[in-house]
Write a protein that binds this DNA or RNA. Structure first.
Lengths: 187, 187
DNA sequence: ACTCCTATAAACCGATTGGTACTAAATAAA
DNA sequence: TTTATTTAGTACCAATCGGTTTATAGGAGT
């Protein structure tokens, strides 16, 4: 027997997409109900704390996904394989440049002040995990941190530019360029 | 005799800073009046079209500044000097990473749909102007466009990461890195 | 003095905001 | 089946939204 219940994780995914499209302030409760087809009753059942709790849970959800799928592999598995996996996951997660980074978007306006710790930790861990993998793969100690930072900067910038130009190809070729740059530093 | 009238350009500058801090949707009229100390009467006198007109005028104002201070010099003057000037202007305009790019922020959420042409043109012209200057300075034809795109991506990404980490130093060292990368391609 | 005209202030508008209360339906436990 | 308990739908709330209107203040030109 197949259970097809609608649970909180489903609500998180639906609401997350609305925040991604409209931003935190732009996502009004009525827009959220309209786009997710979830009634206010459902939303306030899952998120008694309202919008703020939705955003917090969504960010925790995103963070957990990145930790499992990218950061932990970078920290624990074969570094070259994990880095290769990171580029693939990054491309698929951001839908090849069509999907924005919710946490990056939150960082730009005053929304950041409500979630500053979560935002900071997300980016910090990404950079540290990648820098650690680069180190273990043979990148010189002086370069690893800077290269990891450069990669994360490039991903965020490419997402912005891809949307600004309405040209998703920007994202794909930026990932390729960053990938090659990291590879030149390992033997 | 010194004229100290308060004119529209002053209002544009004040309101622009509010949009930068809060985003388009986050900047409610009451927040704008509170932060700028301008009454609604004043604001609707300068901008009869309300918030949307404010944003449009602000973006036109930003665009005009970049055209005068960076794009035209890149297109018309000594390319190496213009590129050096671009890095200085970029650092000062974005307050060494403390100030976000309003047009980049608008590009991320649905605000983009209201100003898509202005957003696209701004980034497109920046990349084209820089690519042209690189070409004239001796960068190989195949690299110029990609390098210019990489530079703009890096600037946007660094602004995002600097705010996300609460560490403005990220911005400064990214500018240095990008500057050096461009220079290695010219003799 | 007297108009003009620009600029600011303040009261006010209907619509929409995030959030609550209450109810109905579905599900699980007994 | 009966009884709890969770989940979802609707109506409604005070507060705030973006925007309008009316009134007034202050020069500049005559």
């Amino acid at each position: 027997m197949v259970r097809t219940v609608f649970e909180k994780s489903d609500a998180i995914a639906l609401v997350a997409e609305v925040f991604r499209e409209l931003g935190y302030e732009g996502a009004s409760m009525s827009e959220i109900t309209a786009r997710t087809k979830l009634s206010k009753g459902s939303l306030y059942h899952f998120f008694p704390g309202g919008k703020e709790e939705m955003a917090a849970e969504i960010m925790a959800n995103i963070d957990a996904w990145f930790v499992t799928e990218m950061f932990k592999p970078l920290e624990e598995e074969d570094p070259r394989a994990a880095i290769a996996r990171m580029w693939e996951m990054t491309d698929s997660y951001f839908h090849s440049g069509r999907r924005v980074c919710l946490i990056g978007a939150f960082a730009l306006d005053e929304t950041r002040d409500h979630f500053s710790a979560a935002i900071r930790d997300y980016f910090r861990r990404w950079i540290e995990a990648l820098a650690g993998a680069l180190l273990r793969a043979g990148t010189p100690d002086t370069d690893a941190k800077m290269l990891a930072e450069e990669a994360v900067i490039g991903i965020q910038g490419a997402l912005t530019l891809a949307r600004a130009l309405g040209d998703e190809a920007v994202f794909g070729r930026t990932l390729v360029r960053l990938k090659l740059r990291l590879e030149t530093t390992l033997g």
